[in-house]
Design a protein around this nucleic acid. Structure first.
Lengths: 218, 218
DNA sequence: TCAAAAGTGTTCAGTGTACACCCATGG
DNA sequence: CCATGGGTGTACACTGAACACTTTTGA
């Protein structure tokens, strides 16, 4: 066996996550393969001969979303020989994070957001992929600053807190949270405030830099 | 392009790391491909048609090492279309950790350990793979208990400390280190001591469990 | 008795946690 | 004036960090 060149079909799938109104969601489309007709699936497709898997992932997403320059990282490679009944398909999965306000900008009709907590059985091993994506997200939220990739340009500190609470499934004390965020120097005030709410207007903040780095949260 | 099935050659490479006498090392073999003749390379090979990449990785390692049931995790998939001059080869890289006392048990003559700090130019993109492996190791040492996979069954607390110091490139205070390790309840004393040293004999310890879990170190 | 590494506690600073009330606005 | 979420400070416990000397052994 060791001298046999093996030709595998190379694919990519992307778990695009966002937080929508206090719910962690993943972007799903309708499966087209005859084996999974009628089921939901992660956006994905085959990789071109000269193409990197990440490029292929972006190419596929461009058919679904207007913008694709969001946080994206390689997640895991799924290689079970039986994962696709049609043959040996190895998929390099990616994790993409989209801010809540951008998540509306999904252009294809068969694509929509689904709460990760209540997913039906997905095509292929995509339930497993989503699980890995959520786990990765939860890990990275606690020891890096990637939360910026889930937030709009300007946001309130309550928004930020809710994002952590939703994604990490915990509740935080408002005063301690703010103290922490301020001590890490991740954000700065803007001169803007949220208008039109039936209560004291919240100050809008921005991240000092939207660039991945390690920081020590919870 | 999106409707073209792409056949890629699927390979696997393993960065096997160990700590040898205060030096972090990686297991390398002689490259055989004509493009990289004479260079060193990570152990690796092509993946069989019905084979998982991890199985293939273990199969390849069995030709080099007596035992292979060490800590092993998928590291990253390297897919640059130009990474192998002979054609499109996508490699799923693994990270394996071997305890110092087991590292002697390398059976093939062309395989040997090399300090990761002073590697020559390796075949393919294997310098990059090693770099990713070391980075992963350093991360996991700080927030999990995988250090067990680098230690022999019994070890002194100084050994353990030196392992962290070597792999993480830092120095630790002995008293604080022991306090930390004890508070995490990771190890327990044995009745054995190290004999024959020209100083007070050190107590040997064991891990309570050699099972991956998150813990909060440094 | 000397050299070498093992083994052991305390103090202090800083961080994490618990906790409650007033503020600004729209309706 | 009421309802709603925004915004703020303090006290205490705990953790992390700095730091030095005695013990046990072999040579």
């Amino acid at each position: 066996m060791k001298d046999t060149k093996t030709f595998a079909v190379l694919a990519t799938d992307v778990a695009v996550l966002t937080i929508d109104n206090g719910v962690l969601k993943v972007l799903l489309t309708q499966a087209t393969s005859k084996n999974f007709k009628g089921m939901l699936t992660l956006p994905g497709g085959l990789v071109g001969h000269k193409e990197r898997t990440e490029e292929a992932a972006i190419r596929v997403l461009k058919e679904i979303m207007i913008k694709t320059d969001y946080y994206n990282e390689q997640l895991y490679t799924f290689d079970d020989p039986g994962r696709d009944p049609e043959g040996r398909v190895v998929t390099v999965a990616y994790l993409m994070l989209v801010p809540e306000d951008e998540a509306k900008r999904v252009t294809r009709k068969d694509a929509s957001w689904h709460a990760v907590k209540t997913l039906p059985k997905l095509a292929y091993d995509h339930n497993e992929v989503v699980k890995a994506a959520v786990k990765r997200l939860m890990g990275k939220l606690t020891y890096t600053n990637i939360v910026y990739s889930l937030m709009p340009l300007e946001f309130t500190l309550s928004d930020l807190q809710k994002t952590y609470e939703t994604a990490l499934e915990l509740t935080l004390d408002k005063r301690n949270f703010i103290k922490k965020i301020k001590s890490l120097n991740l954000v700065h005030k803007t001169t803007h405030k949220v208008e039109g709410s039936a209560h004291r207007p919240a100050t809008l903040y921005r991240f000092r830099e939207r660039k991945y780095k390690r920081v020590d949260l919870f």
